[in-house]
Simulated assay, not measured.
Amino acid sequence: MSVTELAIVAKIGREVFPRADVLAWEDMRIDAAAKKIGAPAPAPAPIADRREAWLRVKQDLGNDELLRRLRRDTTIAGAMARMAKLSGRRRKSVTDLFVPGGSARHFTEWFTGITVASDEAALLRACPDHFVLRMHSGTQQVLETNGGSPVAALFDIDYDDVSSLTTPIDVQFPYRLDGVARGSDGTPIGGVRHQFRDTSDGVHARLLVEFPLTVPGIVVRGHRWHLACEFANWFEAAVASGAA
């Protein structure tokens, strides 16, 4: 897929990072994700080429094989998620993106479209740590590595339910992509509240994931880079498609 790189700026914590830094993180995570599933990493190349090569590796293996290879990880992560029942408190991972050009409404419509259509290539391509992203029994099944976690997690996101989210809506952001994350037994374990608004220069995206309190802080902090990577790539893909 041919896309034009945008000068997207990421604000992570108190620091601001250019697109090049996020792309360098993505390049590094391709190698880590390949090791995670016991697959050869794509050869050194421009990041756009490595991204496509890594997507093909995941597609060739297929969802069932990826789920099988990561079953031990997801069993461990599932046990940790069940501990979340002990507390309704959450840890929050937040990243702000500032996108030159585009439209908040058009982007959220585009993203909803690829999610509902279960466009697995568009969903998997966005981050090396995405292994399975598809609509499954009415919710989005997600198998991914969160931040720098040592294990991959398997969960569902229900975009029709926001009842257990603890993050309030910011009225300055009129567009949202949000939903509850549930563990294998249906227990709410967190969720997403991604909010978007138009600016004089383009789009301001405030990306937020709620994790169970039991998730270590180092994972929550590391996931801010995951958010910067996936949404910057999705914004570029939306612009390339003419939708944003």
Rank of each mutant, 00 (worst) to 15 (best):
L61C: 06
G62Q: 14
G62P: 09
G62D: 05
L67A: 14
L67K: 13
R68D: 11
L70C: 13
R71K: 14
R71D: 12
R72P: 11
R72Y: 10
T74K: 05
T74L: 10
A84D: 04
A84W: 02
A84T: 02
L86H: 05
S87Q: 15
R89N: 04
R90T: 08
K92W: 06
K92G: 01
S93P: 02
V94D: 02
L97D: 05
L97I: 13
R105K: 13
T108H: 04
T108A: 00
E109C: 06
A117S: 13
S118C: 05
L123M: 11
A126M: 07
D129S: 12
D129F: 00
D129N: 13
F131H: 11
V132L: 05
L133V: 15
S137Q: 15
G138M: 12
G138H: 09
T139V: 00
T139C: 07
E144I: 04
N146M: 14
N146D: 10
G148K: 03
G148I: 15
S149K: 08
D158I: 12
D158G: 06
Y159H: 14
D160M: 15
D161H: 07
S164N: 14
L165H: 09
T166I: 06
F173D: 08
R176K: 11
L177V: 09
V180E: 05
V180P: 03
V180S: 10
G183A: 15
D185V: 12
G186H: 07
T187L: 09
T187N: 12
T187R: 06
G190A: 04
G191E: 01
R193L: 13
